[in-house]
Design a protein around this nucleic acid. Structure first.
Lengths: 152, 152
DNA sequence: TAACATAAGTGGTTAATAGTGGGTTAAAAT
DNA sequence: ATTTTAACCCACTATTAACCACTTATGTTA
């Protein structure tokens, strides 16, 4: 599934006393009019928060709608993915308030790093990201597997 | 079957001394005029209560009518879903009183957590949900199977 | 390269809404 | 008739969202 969004780059910001985070202007500019400044923040798979523009999120959502709640696996999966998904808008200054639950999940303190990763934006505790960056050596074998699918 | 409803997010509330529960404003706002503040609360498949906006419930009902009562599974499923279904309205403050039978079924005490799960809303005993969240490890294999269908 | 102009980021205040509690009236049951 | 229960309404408080203003950075033009 390909996306219209190709977020890239890395930006340093502070979260303010009201838990507001500024979406970097270069990323914000990519939001289409259709999105109407609306997006979904949710738990990332690593300890960070993920942002999807709402039109992008709806694609994911329509896939989730195919899953029947009669299956236990599906129920748990749906619950755990949807309960942390917050639909938000950024204000006229390009900011939004990050929900408390995600602040805790991503260990957000003051210094944050925002990264563009194609169809999503990641929000990290700067310190945490740097530590992971050093320690998280993906072994060569997994890259080999990847190479069969992705041609860089 | 896709739905017009796409409830998401998680909200913490208290049930009050009159057994009233507040439907979180963000979820309430999604109710269409057609629903006229009316919805169905019933037993969830796990120990929680499920809320469907009335227009959504009617769709489900017509699907349930397709199920033959010759199957035992069907009979049990139909019984449990239909006998506990209460048609209710929320008041001008957005609250409704949760029937005693569902309070017992979902072990509702004071602290409750409300979760949006696409076409339905779940009401949980906060403590219970957290416990299940930890213990209910769906094995990786089932998620692997899921991954073939859902691309997040 | 200096001055200006524009855009981006930051902080705070105000206004609106959501959540909560309680009270009153109407209905129901004993 | 009295008590209990439920629906409806009103009011207070806390939280959230919208708005305004200032500062810093970037970029453009003389």
């Amino acid at each position: 599934m390909s996306s219209q969004y190709t977020f890239t780059g890395q930006y340093s910001f502070n979260i303010d006393s009201k838990n507001r985070i500024n979406i970097p202007a270069p990323l914000r500019k990519q939001f289409s009019n259709k999105d109407k400044k609306t997006f979904v923040v949710t738990r990332g798979i690593d300890s960070c928060a993920w942002i999807y523009p709402i039109t992008e999120w709806k694609k994911i959502q329509s896939e989730l709608q195919q899953l029947s709640s009669l299956s236990k696996t599906n129920r748990i999966f749906l619950r755990n993915h949807l309960r942390h998904a917050n639909i938000l808008k950024y204000d006229s200054q390009g900011r939004f308030v990050l929900p408390q639950s995600l602040i805790e999940y991503a260990s957000i303190k003051k210094d944050i790093t925002i990264i563009g990763v194609l169809n999503k934006i990641e929000i990290w505790n700067t310190k945490l990201l740097n530590e992971i960056d050093k320690s998280d050596n993906v072994n060569d074998q997994s890259y080999d597997q990847l190479s069969e699918r992705v041609n860089i």
